[in-house]
Design a protein around this nucleic acid. Structure first.
Lengths: 181, 181
DNA sequence: TGGCATGACTGCAACTGTGCATAGGTGCCA
DNA sequence: TGGCACCTATGCACAGTTGCAGTCATGCCA
């Protein structure tokens, strides 16, 4: 949103956005879940919508991280918001990602289903009675890693591709795992 | 809070609580960060307050889980709220713990310092340049495990000691770790 | 053409939470 | 005793968000 880039995050109220879009503030919330989501150009999440189907077979950790980043909409292409604008907004106002991240854990129920699917496809978890619980733990860990990677990425002034976030998160998880067991 | 047990969570507004305490609603927020915290009897978190010093030396995973549960105030004893009341509130309205859990990740900055301390005390992480990042990942994973354990505990009708939460979270993490690497 | 279901848009009120500014009391020191 | 600093409680205004209910246009069917 160009309003944010012009006036800053706090000064861009929902009322201002609604005015500009020529609708009532109430209508705004019929189309967006939160102000932050709207700024990032992410539409409402519909409960029944199926999430990006995970591509099985690859590395488990990497798949989960990829799934999360997809779900966060980091890679969503919107009609009204260009990718560069979004990156710039994130860089200037990293807080908006905080909301995204907590929404992730809120949607844990749906997401962990997909993670579970990924897990049971690997041999280590195939005969695990407790996959559901472990999927959620795995997800939480991945969300944490993505958070760290995102923060580092946002702090780093240079424009790097979002792929680097994914790589960083993955290696971070693996390093932690190796040292823990 | 007995108001919650009598009227339910949604019907117990901040205004109602303030009225009963004979203060202005604005004053309410001088003493509690959120409505949920107030209901659980948890006072404001002061940024400069030092958190429960972790007892070093024991098992790393178990220590981190214990730290989190302490910080969540699960074990806080309040003058006005009895332990049993709180457990009953949690059982009836598990959502309030969702807030607690997301606050945990919000306070990640402070907490991960303590986790880091725990980690560097163990041999595997003692010479790690990236402990800070890994501490946060470890914390996120632990928060996830505690979340699962809490939910199971809340769903289970029987009154079991909070120790069981800690045990469940710990074994959950360890099982996931073992299967991942 | 008339009646009706549907869906988009909206207004209103309520609630949680925060920043700011202020009033009042209390203790301390000259 | 007078004045000052400080701390608590409070009011006010505002922002984000949600539920409820009402309006209005549209299209479909008899």
């Amino acid at each position: 949103m160009f309003l944010v880039l012009r006036d800053g995050l706090a000064a861009t109220t929902v009322e201002a956005i609604s005015d500009r879009a020529d609708v009532a503030p109430r209508t705004f919330f019929n189309y967006f879940d939160t102000k932050d989501n709207a700024i990032l150009g992410l539409p409402r999440v519909r409960g029944d919508e199926d999430l990006a189907t995970p591509h099985l077979g690859g590395d488990l950790v990497d798949s989960v991280v990829g799934l999360l980043m997809d779900e966060m909409g980091v890679s969503v292409q919107s009609r009204t918001t260009t990718h560069d604008d979004r990156l710039e907004v994130i860089r200037r106002h990293p807080e908006v990602l905080g909301g995204q991240l907590s929404q992730l854990t809120a949607r844990a129920g749906r997401l962990s289903g997909a993670v579970q699917e990924l897990m049971t496809a690997t041999s280590a978890f195939s005969d695990d009675r407790d996959v559901a619980a472990r999927a959620e733990v795995m997800m939480a860990m991945s969300v944490g890693a993505v958070r760290v990677a995102l923060r580092e990425w946002a702090a780093d002034g240079r424009a790097r591709p979002t792929d680097s976030i994914r790589r960083r998160a993955t290696t971070l998880i693996r390093g932690t795992l190796r040292r823990l067991e």
